[in-house]
Every structure is written in C-alpha cells, then in structure tokens.
C-alpha cells in the first residue's frame, strides 16, 4: 500500500483531463478502513485505496461496442469483493474492465457509475 509520501506521485499519475472535485481530493490523504453506517448492507469493510492503475476494456456491451484501449485510472476504495475507480470516461453497468492493481490483475464488472465533476466519473463494481 502506498503511504502519504506518495501523494505527489499519485497526482502526477492521474490523467491530465481527470478533474477531481475537492471532496475527492481529500481522499488521497486518507488510509485505513472507511467509516460505515448503522444499516450498512455491504458484507465486507471498504478501505481507502488511492492508487493509480492501468486499465483496459475486457468486455463491452453488444449495443455499445467501443474500444477504450489502455488508460490510467485512479482507484478510490477497495473491499474484498469490489473496487471504486475514477476516470474521465463514463462506464456502463455490465461492462467488464481489466485492472492492473498493485495487488495483482483484477477483472471488474461495472455495477454503477456516477458523474462527480465535469470530467470525472466514479464507477464501482465487483471483481469477477
């Protein structure tokens, strides 16, 4: 896991177009488990996980065949079953992405995506 000293490197690795809104900039400094809520439905705790990772598209949708190619994403948080990432592109539920994380290669099935700034989408999903 990267420590706080790596933040400048992280910022340098973020794609130039990716626009992080202020609340998301704070998470770059954070480490450890994320706070939970009383009626949390997630089975496993999530951890702050601000690292940059290489990404490619593994499986697109029949109605949207597109080539995303290789790019860099900023990961946000991680649990045993899934991960949240930040990227300039919008991803759609059902798409499968391949991520090269420091902990190894993972395939991510996108479950949801939200736009957090003009050029910043937060996508989250499960490892498959």
């Amino acid at each position: 896991m990267l420590d706080v000293n790596h933040v400048p490197e992280l910022l340098a690795a973020i794609p130039r177009q990716l626009e992080l809104p202020p609340p998301l900039r704070d998470f770059l400094q954070k480490r450890g488990p994320m706070t939970t809520v009383a009626n949390e439905l997630r089975r496993f705790p999530r951890f702050y996980y601000p690292v940059s990772a290489r990404m490619s598209s593994e499986q697109t949708l029949p109605a949207l065949p597109r080539d995303i190619g290789h790019s860099v994403v900023l990961t946000k948080d991680l649990s045993r079953t899934g991960i949240a990432i930040l990227h300039t592109e919008q991803f759609y539920p059902g798409e499968v992405l391949k991520l090269w994380l420091p902990c190894g290669e993972k395939q991510l099935l996108v479950v949801r995506c939200k736009q957090t700034a003009e050029a910043c989408f937060e996508a989250a999903g499960f490892f498959v």
């Binding site: 029949p62 539920p93 479950v111």
Partner: peptide
C-alpha cells in the same frame, strides 16, 4: 440502473 443491467446484454435492443 437495475433495468439497464438486466437488458444490456440483449442483442436485439439498440
């Protein structure tokens, strides 16, 4: 989102 996820792999839908 749930509706889209259910239908997104259907070849016949545009």
């Amino acid at each position: 989102t749930v509706g889209f996820a259910r239908l997104c792999r259907r070849e016949k839908l545009t």
